[in-house]
Simulated scan of single mutants.
Amino acid sequence: MAQGIPKIGWEQVSPAPVVLVFGKESFLADRALQRLKSLLLMEDPELEVSDLDAGQYTDGALELIASPSLFDEPRLVRVSNGVKATDAFIADALRYLQAPVDGTTLVIRHDGSTVRGKKLLDAIRSHPGAIEVVCQPLGRGDMVPFARNELRLLEREATPGAIAALVDAFHSDIAELANAVRQVALDTEGPVTEQVVRTYYAGRVETTAFAVVDAVVAGDVAKALVTLRQAIATGADPVPIVAAFAMRYRQLAKVSGVSGGGAQVARQLGMQDWQLNNARRDLRGFTDASLCDAIEAIAHADHAVKGAERDPQHAVERLVRQLASRAAA
């Protein structure tokens, strides 16, 4: 049985005869393509780059483009839209895999949204000279190491709180998160701290749902209400605000049921070390009964903001008042 080809992240991509860039996260796919082109240019500045659209492909184009030139310059052939590949492209690509051209790197982009070209995908994944770059959307838990790595690439040090603040503010869009990390890294000096991030992105970070949750858990009713109103005024929707409460209080519930600390316990709970430490600190203000009541109130609010009540903003403000008042008691 054939061994599967290596599956790697965008930051690990390296030249290979055939590269499959697979997954729905176009930002990571673009990163992989940029890195691959840069590496090939470093090997030979005379690199010839050609682009094909698999959805508009006509018979014979791949062979024509990939064939050695008169001066044998290396070639990078980038094929987009593999998810809509024509029958002609699939047939030509299958034929090409039987005898890849020396000095040519063939990159095929497929977002995986359909099984179109499955025979070709299977052939690539069993080809000994191929690699697969996995570009799936990142979950919220993956955003923290992503942001940390972005800062590392920029040779900047950052505190866990700074990374958490960046992720809280920009977790909905990985491209926006990457740009935010780059901007704060280039425009500030010294270690990137939470205060640096909150000062630099004051209008964005201070009004996130997670800033509202922080104030509520701390029992600061006035700050929680002000922050909530700022969030709503800047376009925040009640549904994700309640979702942020649900995520935070689920973390508290998970942590309340385990003893001990450290990286191993955090991994078991699917959390970062700093999240575990913060949850343990926040739990000091809760009893089992009050935590249960809070989770029940969040469930009611979730139902309300999703259509059970006419005024979702009133429902989320009521939730903030209830939870912050209990935490302050």
Rank of each mutant, 00 (worst) to 15 (best):
F286K: 01
E63K: 13
G129C: 08
M247Y: 07
A61N: 02
P100M: 06
V205S: 05
A158L: 08
L47C: 12
V265C: 07
R182D: 10
A165H: 05
A294T: 04
D311I: 07
A66R: 07
Q313K: 15
A308Q: 12
R198T: 10
F71M: 14
H314M: 15
L94K: 13
R116M: 06
F170S: 06
Q230T: 02
L106M: 10
G257T: 09
A91V: 01
A236N: 10
T208E: 01
F210Y: 14
F170M: 06
L252I: 08
D168N: 15
K306W: 01
D44I: 02
N81Y: 01
A61G: 00
R267T: 09
L283Q: 08
V79L: 05
S14A: 15
V217M: 05
A185N: 11
R204W: 06
A175W: 03
A158Y: 05
A266K: 04
A130D: 07
V305Q: 09
V107R: 02
A93L: 07
P100E: 08
D220H: 12
P68L: 11
V265R: 10
V79Y: 01
M143H: 07
A32Q: 07
R116D: 04
P68C: 13
L62S: 10
E63N: 10
D168Q: 14
E132W: 02
E317C: 07
T208S: 13
T227L: 02
D53N: 14
G262Y: 06
L76E: 07
Y201L: 14
R78K: 11
V196D: 01
A244K: 09
